[in-house]
Amino acid sequence: MYEEFLEDIAQTNGLREVNTYLKLSAGLGAILLCLLSQNYIAPLFIAIVLSGTILLLAKIDARTYGGLFVLPLTFAIMSVAVIVLISGGEETFWSWNPLPWLSLAVTQESLNEGFFVFCRVIGGMSALIFIALTTPMTDLFVVMRQCHVPEVVLDLAMMIYRSIFMIMDQLVQIYHAQVMRLGYGSFRESIQSFSTLCGAVFIGSWSAGEDLIRAMDARCYDGKFAVLGETRPLEALPVLTVALFLGLSMLLVFLARDLTIMGAGS
């Protein structure tokens, strides 16, 4: 019913033992540079380097990794099409005015803009997926505590984290049971079954959550989940690699400035 969570992969990836801060600075730095970049080269460079890292160093299966891009790329292609059609420009290749307030045109500028946004999305997505695949949430909780995220937020985050897995478990079981009994035959039945499913799972995981809190209260819970975190040491080679990667990307962002695929343009 659902895709495998990236979390499961992240727990066993090849870069699991690398310092969390280092992985985060590589990922977040890449996202930031993608956003700041005015040309398409830098995001593409970031995408290639990070994809290489994910495939070769983190040893993520290429098919799994590719599969993650299917959905965002579909969105990206469709949205870029909209940008290309509505953003306009001077050098017009094709245009159409179906309604007085709407004018669609393909221009040199809009193609440039569309390709640029497309590359930015690819770069940003690979950075995001890099963080998602190499850093399990449990490590992030440690970082969040060290960064003084308010305790309530952290508590709530862990509670939600836990309930997601509880809900998924029950959801899949009950859903299969319903499908076996032809619960999704017609539209009406689907709504009915889906609501029953949600209701039952909601109440079920809620009670499980209450049990958890009660069990923790009995063990002196004071509104603060204990997080077992070991910070892994920073090693010279990985730090240098990340610095080199971010430095090179920054160079591309500033040197290539507003290079465009079709030339000219603004």
């Binding site: 709530l156 509670m159 836990r162 309930s163 809900i167 909601f202 995981s205 959550g209 209450e210």
Partner: peptide, 9 residues
């Protein structure tokens, strides 16, 4: 807290 957790989930 449990209710908030489940709603979030």
């Amino acid at each position: 807290l449990p209710l908030l957790g489940v709603t979030g989930g």
